[in-house]
Amino acid sequence: MNRLVTVAEMTLRELARRRGVLLLLLLMPLTFWLIRRDSYVGQSVRALLLGISWAVSTAALFATSAARELEPRLRLAGYRPHHLYLGRMLGLWALGLAISVPFFLLTVVDANNLRYGGIAVAMLCCVAVAAPFGMVIGVLLPRELEGTLLLLTVVAMQMLLDPADAGAKLTPFWSSREIGTWAVDHTDDGYLTRGVLHGLVVTVLLIVTVAAVFAVRLRRRRHLHHVPLA
């Protein structure tokens, strides 16, 4: 447990010190919100949710890429793979929650007639999915630029696809859009249920993928035999 907490803490410390990047990441959801603010609150909420997803997954991508060289030696220092990816994920989830709180308060103060509980759940889904999603991209693509471009493509696709389209359900942040619709348009509870279920399934799938990649990358090699001290 101590190892998990230490990795989570160090992840948070590292990200908190990237102040410039953090500010720019926060700027995107805020800009989305402000651009749509006067026209239609539903669009501004959905854009805000997408902005939070973008911010958290980009932070996850950066954190994962930055740790690529460090992780093998931490493995040698006694960490198991799950300490490393779960610890980092915990740190990123904590960061995501910290980012979401001011934006949630913004919707409470600035928009009327919303199901605020639904907004909170949608934001939780964004954070839950975004952290492992950014990590998956980070472990599969070695360079931050490539990862950022892929992330941008996914977010743009998410924005442009019709949510009613069957293919849209294959995008990672569909859940928050569905819950957002429930919260903004006061639709039936089926939207909430589908959204939460989708968020859970995608989060679990992404965590399993991260776990599999870490297990392969940081595996004990068969040629290396450890024997106790003579």
Binding site: E14, A66, L70, L76, H223, L224, V227, A230
Partner: peptide, 27 residues
């Protein structure tokens, strides 16, 4: 790294210092 052939046997704890990298910029 895995070799194409050969084996390594280590007795006790292993420490490794890479040529570069291996530290965290923001810590």
């Amino acid at each position: 790294v895995s070799p194409d052939a050969g084996e390594v046997t280590v007795s006790g704890r292993l420490g490794y210092c890479p040529q570069q990298g291996g530290t965290a910029d923001f810590l």
